[in-house]
Structures are given as structure tokens and as C-alpha cells.
């Protein structure tokens, strides 16, 4: 049970509300791991605990053998733990391609004074890679369009492209399918699968059950800050507690 990401008894309370109650889970490398649960189950909290936007009250987060619990968000990102956002968080003053270039700013080579001196050849390589990422996300023809002028669905995908530019080994997607048309959803499913095919692992928080069932290798169900069930999509679908707590009421 060694995974690329492990949570060991992670706990987080807001005032009296236990948003994460001794949550333990393990994400196996190279898989797409779903995180589902009813509203208020603590999915987003758990997401923020994994990426370091919140610090856990107790428990540990281990990423690829490194204990990242005390690390900042950006330090975790540089290790390859990168997230996207529920809201369309983008560098809205920049074009799509500039956004992707910006996405790599924090994780490009970090030699001394590299932030000051960059050879033209390095720059060309950066642009080339940004173009590839945009292409792979199906936004190749939108490179020069200002991020703010893209459609909602395109902005969502651009958010993923920005995260990809940071070179994630584990990509955390926060409700990526929200507000997308059926066609965009199909495209996104393919994009997510291609990301995995290139070697990254993925954790997915999502409400769209069809997409989750289609994509995920394993699913963890949360309820009231606790792990309710875990297993393959089929196991989870048939789990009586899950049906009672979640699917039954959904």
C-alpha cells in the first residue's frame, strides 16, 4: 500500500466543526483517485490540507516519501503537488499562452540567479513547451486570446494547462467539470486520461458522478469529515452506506 500520496490520521477543525476527522487515505501512483461526498463532507478542506493552503491540526501528509506536512503550498508545488481551483483562477491580464508560461515560473530550473539571466534558447524552449501543453489541452488555436475572453469551459481547461506547466507529478483537480457543456466534458475526460497516460497521478474532487465513475480507478467517499468508504467505482456504487448517505439522497 505504498502510494504517491499518503494521508495519515489528518485532522482539521474550524471552531466546533470537524472538517477532517482523522482522515487516512493513500493514492497509488499512476491512478486517478476520486474524492466524493455530499456537500459539506470536507472534500475541499481535505484538498487544501493536501496542498498546504491549510495546516492540519494533527496527522501527516506524505508525498512521494517526503513528509510535506510542515511545507508551504509553493514548496509542495515545487515537489510536484499541484492543484487547480474551483473558481476560474487565472492570470486574467495575460493571454492563454502567457498564462501557461507563467504557470512554469515557479518550477523552472532554480539555479542561482537564473531568475535574472535567461538565454534566448531557454526562452524559446519555454515557449515551445507552453505551446505543446496548450495543444494537448485542445486550446492550441486560442494561444493569443486573453484569458478573460475565453469561455467558462475553456477557462477551466486553461486552469489545468497552467497547473500542467508547473510539472505536476500529482495533479489535484477541484471540480473541473463544473459548468461545462457535455462536449467540453467529453474533451476534458480525454485530457485527464492523457495526463495520466503521461505518468502523472490525479486526485479528483467532483460532483458529476458520471464523470467520476468513468474516470476514476479508485474512489474515496467522505461524509462529515470522515472516510465513509473506499474502493473501485463498482464497489463504491454498491456500498450500502454510500447509497444511504450520498447516492440515495442525491
Amino acid at each position: 500500500m505504498t502510494g504517491i500520496l499518503q494521508l495519515l490520521a489528518v485532522r482539521k477543525a474550524f471552531g466546533g466543526l470537524l472538517a477532517a476527522d482523522e482522515v487516512s487515505l493513500s493514492v497509488v501512483a499512476g491512478t486517478i483517485h476520486g474524492l466524493i461526498g455530499p456537500n459539506g463532507a470536507g472534500k475541499t478542506t481535505l484538498f487544501s490540507l493536501i496542498t498546504g493552503f491549510y495546516r492540519a491540526d494533527s496527522g501527516t501528509v506524505v508525498f512521494d516519501g517526503t513528509n510535506v506536512t510542515p511545507m508551504s503550498t509553493s514548496a509542495r508545488a515545487r515537489l510536484g503537488l499541484v492543484r487547480t481551483f474551483q473558481s476560474n483562477l487565472l492570470f486574467s491580464e495575460q493571454s492563454a499562452i502567457e498564462n501557461v508560461v507563467s504557470g512554469g515560473l515557479g518550477t523552472r530550473s532554480r539555479q542561482a540567479f537564473d531568475w535574472l539571466f535567461e538565454r534566448p534558447s531557454q526562452r524559446a524552449a519555454v515557449m515551445e513547451r507552453a505551446r505543446e501543453i496548450l495543444q494537448s489541452c485542445g486550446l492550441g488555436d486560442k494561444a493569443e486570446v486573453p484569458a478573460g475572453s475565453l469561455s467558462h469551459g475553456q477557462q477551466r481547461i486553461l486552469g489545468i494547462a497552467v497547473a500542467l506547466a508547473a510539472g505536476p507529478r500529482l495533479l489535484l483537480l477541484d471540480e473541473p467539470f463544473t459548468g461545462m457543456t457535455a462536449r467540453e466534458k467529453d474533451a476534458l475526460v480525454e485530457i485527464v486520461q492523457s495526463i495520466r497516460a503521461r505518468g502523472a497521478s490525479i486526485v479528483l474532487v467532483e460532483h458529476d458522478m458520471r464523470a467520476v465513475m468513468r474516470l476514476c480507478d479508485r474512489i474515496t467517499v467522505l461524509n462529515f469529515g470522515k472516510v465513509l468508504a473506499e474502493g473501485t467505482p463498482d464497489q463504491v456504487r454498491r456500498h450500502p452506506d454510500v447509497m444511504a448517505a450520498y447516492l440515495g439522497t442525491a
Binding site: 508545488a77 515545487r78 483562477l89 495575460q94 507563467s102
Partner: peptide, 19 residues
């Protein structure tokens, strides 16, 4: 570029590894 990224979206900048 890093300075501009921080100014435009601090949260996003941190999430892609900018301290």
C-alpha cells in the same frame, strides 16, 4: 514575470510553486 504573477493572482502563483 514572477512579480506580475504574484500581483495578479497571489493564490494561483503559490499553487504553481512561487514562494
Amino acid at each position: 514575470g514572477i512579480w506580475r504573477a504574484i500581483q495578479q493572482q497571489d493564490v494561483l502563483a503559490q499553487s504553481i510553486g512561487i514562494e
